[in-house]
Structures are given as structure tokens and as C-alpha cells.
């Protein structure tokens, strides 16, 4: 019976934390070994697991218990295959996480392991290159790594605008575009926003990008150009067509990777990192703390 194959990793894992699972793990090992060597499992573990499963189902719905009992081997096999596949994907994710810092590999995107990363280990960027706002001589420097196509960066935007409004001359704000490849047209949006910055319409364009994120996701270049035309951004078409700021975006992207950025938005307040959707509120609290102690 293949059920022991599923039980083995479960009991092995549980036995790391509790001695009572170790005999079960040993029985599962013996059972798997016998199974692999085409012998009958004699520990009785497979019978116990089957009986417990069928009894559990029977308490809920007797006909289902009969069905599962009749096809138990098939169900076991399906679950075993699913478990093996999940192990393969998990191993692939761990490998990608170790090599690329994201379980999806070089493409990036949402990764469940991101929580394992401690923002304290993020390295603050060495330059202030980026799209800036506020007082360049202010003692507080806030750097944001963000993606125009990222819903979390969009969600933080109100906080960013409030911060710029509330602290005005007391803060120097630097936005470093960090397009996430899995987000549709993220690189194009970053280039377009830089063209809008050159045309002195950066903040309206930025607002429009976040406000029309799904439009950009759906239409790409058409949407980016349409927004620029509505805002009358001068020189936008040629700037965008030449991908004039592609190298700048590549530079901020490389800078972000060097800093260990694993998700957007990521804020640095005088070098102290804050990551994720709530990061902008933490940023605000940090600014208040710095202003209070000044």
C-alpha cells in the first residue's frame, strides 16, 4: 500500500518535534522500504491509516466511505503523486529562492518564502539616483523601490502622497523604479513614467498609472501612450519609442537586486528598510520618530 509513502514524510517531520511520532516514523520507513523492495508491509501501519481514514469518512457519510474503501489504492496513488509533485515544486522554489532570492526564479512575482527574509538584512542603496521630490537638503531621506504595475505599490501610493504633503521640506523622497517582470508591462510603464518625468508631468502621470493599472495591464503601449496624450506630456512619443530611459531603469533594477529587494514596495528611511503593503505606514512612523528626536 502506498499510503505509507505519504505517511513517511509527515511522521518524519512530526518526529522532529515530538518523540511520540518516532515509532510511527520508524514503522513508515520499514513499510516504505518493504514496498520499494516489492514486499508486503508488515508493520500494520498501512492498515491503521486506512482504517482511521475510512472510519473518519464513515462518520461523515457512509456511502462515501464505501466508495473510498473500494478505491483506496487509487486514492492513495493519486495523493502520493500529488505529494511527490508538491515536493518537486517546493524543492524548485527553495532552489530559486536560494539562487535568485525569489521562489519563482529570475521572473520574480509573489513568493511565499518572502516572509522568511528579514528586511533588516536588506542593504540600503548607495546612490540617490531616481525620480525625486521634496527637500534635497533634508536630514530625512526616504527611498522607495516600486513597480507601477504592482498592486502593493499602488496600495501604498496614498501613503506616499500623504507623506510628501505632511513633511514637505523635512523629507527628501527618491523613487527608484523596480519593475517586476511578472507584472504586465511593468518595464514599459517604468520607461513611460521616466519620459513623463522628462516632460515635467511625472506626478500626474504616476497618479494616472496607478489609477489605470488594469487599463495598462490590458492594453500596454496603447494605454501608456493614451495616458500621456491626455496629459499632454511633451516629447513623450519619441522618448517612449526610443526607450530613452531603459538603461536608467535597468540601473535602478540592478541597484535594487544588489540591495536584496525581494518585494515591492520597499522603503528605506535613512537606510532603515520597510517591506510590503504596510511598509508606508511603518515609514511614516519612522519619520515621526526621527523628527521627534531631532
Amino acid at each position: 500500500m502506498v499510503l505509507c509513502i505519504i505517511a513517511l514524510p509527515v511522521f518524519l517531520f512530526l518526529s522532529l518535534f515530538s518523540a511520540k511520532y518516532r515509532p510511527l516514523a520508524r514503522r513508515a520507513i520499514d513499510c516504505v522500504f518493504k514496498k520499494v523492495t516489492l514486499r508486503k508491509c508488515e508493520t500494520g501501519l498501512d492498515d491503521e491509516l486506512k482504517a482511521a481514514s475510512i472510519a473518519g469518512i464513515m462518520k461523515l457519510h457512509a456511502p462515501s466511505a464505501t466508495f473510498v474503501n473500494k478505491h483506496f489504492e487509487a486514492f492513495s496513488l493519486i495523493f502520493t503523486i500529488l505529494m511527490i509533485l508538491s515536493f518537486v515544486f517546493t524543492a524548485q522554489g527553495i532552489y530559486n529562492f536560494a539562487v535568485y532570492g525569489n521562489c519563482n526564479g529570475p521572473e520574480g512575482g509573489f513568493c511565499i518564502y518572502n516572509g522568511l527574509q528579514n528586511p533588516a538584512f536588506l542593504k540600503a542603496p548607495g546612490s540617490l539616483d531616481g525620480i525625486t521630490a521634496g527637500n534635497a537638503t533634508a536630514k530625512i531621506v526616504v527611498i522607495e523601490f516600486g513597480c507601477y504595475s504592482c498592486p502593493y505599490t499602488k496600495a501604498a501610493e496614498d501613503g506616499v502622497l500623504k507623506m510628501l504633503n505632511d513633511y514637505n521640506d523635512q523629507v527628501y523622497f527618491v523613487f527608484k523604479p523596480f519593475p517586476i517582470p511578472t507584472h504586465p508591462y511593468s518595464m514599459e510603464a517604468a520607461i513611460a513614467a521616466s519620459c513623463a518625468n522628462e516632460g515635467e508631468k511625472y506626478w500626474p502621470y504616476r497618479e494616472a498609472l496607478f489609477g489605470n493599472q488594469s487599463y495598462v495591464h490590458d492594453k500596454g503601449d496603447v494605454a501608456l501612450l493614451d495616458i500621456a496624450h491626455q496629459l499632454n506630456v511633451s516629447g513623450f512619443d519619441s522618448c517612449y519609442a526610443q526607450k530613452k530611459f531603459a538603461s536608467f531603469i535597468a540601473q535602478t533594477q540592478k541597484e535594487g537586486q544588489d540591495c536584496g529587494i525581494y518585494g515591492t514596495p520597499t522603503f528605506f528611511v535613512n537606510g532603515k528598510p520597510f517591506v510590503g503593503q504596510n511598509a508606508v505606514n511603518q515609514t511614516d512612523a519612522e519619520i515621526q520618530k526621527l523628527l521627534g528626536s531631532a
Binding site: 492498515d47 491503521e48 486506512k50 482504517a51 482511521a52 472510519a55
Partner: peptide, 14 residues
């Protein structure tokens, strides 16, 4: 068609 161990274990469970 129901193995003896399963019968005993299920009587206990149920």
C-alpha cells in the same frame, strides 16, 4: 473483503 485489522481498528474508531 474487509481485512481483519481494518475491522478491529474501525470498531475502535467508530
Amino acid at each position: 473483503k474487509v481485512p481483519h485489522h481494518q475491522v478491529a481498528l474501525m470498531c475502535d474508531s467508530l
